[in-house]
Simulated scan of single mutants.
Amino acid sequence: MLIGILIYLISPVKANENLIFTFFPMAILATGFVEMTKDDFWKQIIMGIFILIGITLFVFQL
């Protein structure tokens, strides 16, 4: 993830295509966090927040 952020900061053109290098590591870290959480209540809260954010961003994009 740090390498992806470094690539974005060094690149002369600040395009969002360079941020794609940060999505994969962040997805792995988030998945590991959700899987290691023992409490089912917090797992459902975290997944609900991610789903709500995804739906909200989709609606704003329309």
Rank of each mutant, 00 (worst) to 15 (best):
M1K: 12
L2D: 15
L2T: 14
L2R: 08
I3A: 06
I3H: 12
I5A: 15
L6R: 01
L6H: 06
I7S: 09
I7K: 01
Y8M: 11
Y8F: 13
Y8H: 15
Y8K: 07
Y8A: 02
L9M: 13
L9H: 10
I10R: 00
S11E: 11
S11H: 05
S11G: 12
P12S: 06
P12Q: 06
V13M: 14
V13H: 10
V13S: 08
K14A: 12
K14F: 04
K14S: 13
K14T: 00
A15R: 07
A15W: 06
A15Y: 14
A15C: 05
A15L: 14
N16Q: 12
N16V: 05
N16F: 08
E17P: 02
E17N: 11
N18E: 09
N18S: 10
N18C: 03
N18W: 15
N18Q: 15
L19V: 09
L19S: 07
L19H: 09
F21G: 05
F21N: 08
F21Y: 14
T22P: 00
T22K: 08
T22W: 06
F23L: 14
F23W: 11
F23G: 13
F24L: 13
F24P: 09
F24D: 14
P25D: 00
P25W: 09
P25I: 04
P25E: 01
M26Q: 04
M26T: 05
M26K: 11
A27K: 03
I28N: 06
I28E: 12
L29G: 00
L29R: 02
L29N: 08
T31K: 04
T31W: 02
T31S: 08
T31C: 02
G32I: 00
G32E: 04
F33R: 00
F33Y: 01
F33W: 00
F33H: 02
V34G: 07
V34C: 11
M36Q: 00
M36V: 04
M36E: 03
M36A: 09
M36I: 02
T37I: 10
T37P: 09
T37A: 04
K38E: 15
K38T: 11
D39Q: 11
D39S: 04
D39A: 01
D40Q: 07
D40K: 15
D40E: 06
K43E: 00
K43Y: 01
K43W: 00
K43A: 02
Q44T: 10
I45H: 01
I45Q: 08
I46M: 11
I46V: 02
M47I: 12
G48S: 14
G48V: 02
G48F: 05
G48A: 07
I49W: 15
I49Y: 13
I49R: 13
F50V: 00
F50D: 00
F50H: 01
I51K: 06
I51A: 06
I51W: 06
L52F: 10
L52E: 07
I53N: 14
I53L: 12
I53P: 07
I53E: 04
G54N: 11
G54M: 13
G54D: 14
G54W: 15
G54Y: 15
I55K: 10
T56V: 07
T56S: 15
T56I: 10
L57D: 05
L57R: 07
F58N: 13
F58S: 03
F58R: 08
V59Y: 03
V59G: 00
V59K: 10
V59A: 02
F60T: 05
F60N: 04
F60R: 11
Q61H: 15
Q61K: 13
Q61V: 04
L62C: 08
L62Y: 12
